[in-house]
Amino acid sequence: MKYVKPESLHAASVLLSEEPGTTRILAGGTDVLVQLRSEVVEPDLIVDLKHLEGFGDITSEDGGFRIGAGVPSAEMYEHKALHAAWPGVIEGAELIGSTQIQGRCTMVGNLCNGSPAGDSVPGMVAAGAVVRVHGPDGERDVPVEEIPTGPGKTSLAKGEFITSIFLPARPERSGDAYLRFIPRTEMDIAVSSAAANLELDTDGTVTSARVAVGAVAPTVRLVEEAGTALVGSKLDDTAIANMMAAVEAACSPIDDKRGTVEFRTKTAGVLAKRAAHIAYERAGGSK
């Protein structure tokens, strides 16, 4: 196994492109080191990128935020403006692992790990986050939901890696929230999860809604019908019931040691409902 800290984005891309064996990119390392220790993966090359320019920075951009790929969750949590603008995204990132993990783990790592249960992913999808990808052919911006393609798989080509995540500007009267179900209160992988991101008009009617669910399909899924069910409502019981039905219809989970198909489907709807209510309140809506 080789461990390399390349000096530039270009050098990193070349290294990753040219390595014939298994490669892993190290940001926080909280997934990669677990894979190493459990001998699930034995990479030939580990490329450490977090020292590169911008990887550790949170910067304002077009009214939104650009978050470097090496920024650990704990730093995002401590960034007051970011936290105020996107509490749902932050609470997703803040639920990954323990306090100790928080000091290292990154949203980009969580995304590229390709787990459908990644806690920070539904919040980013609901937020309409866009990632910047660097590769042999230069840079491209990609909607976050297009990155994971299946458990452990991403749409990134060989030599490509994510350098940052962009969270767009927040309109007035908007709010987001993320909830997950775990058997304990901490330290578990989500059995099911849901994020909601709402925008309201002045009388509290939902004008735009994005609902994303996790751990109930091969990838985190943006459920457009669930969002549509909320638009035009003030989260009345009918709208919520329709939204929950849309979420349940979008679920195609598996039975495994963490939960059953039935349980995951049912709780995904419940969590989406609860997240929508929190997001609504954060957007200033009242019923």
Binding site: S38, P183, R184, T185, E186, M187, D188, I189, D256, K257, R258
Partner: peptide, 16 residues
């Protein structure tokens, strides 16, 4: 055995 780790062999944590 499907859960030979503390991740999925869930002993109580302080916040529980």
């Amino acid at each position: 055995l499907q859960n030979p780790m503390f991740l999925d062999y869930r002993v109580p944590v302080a916040s529980d």
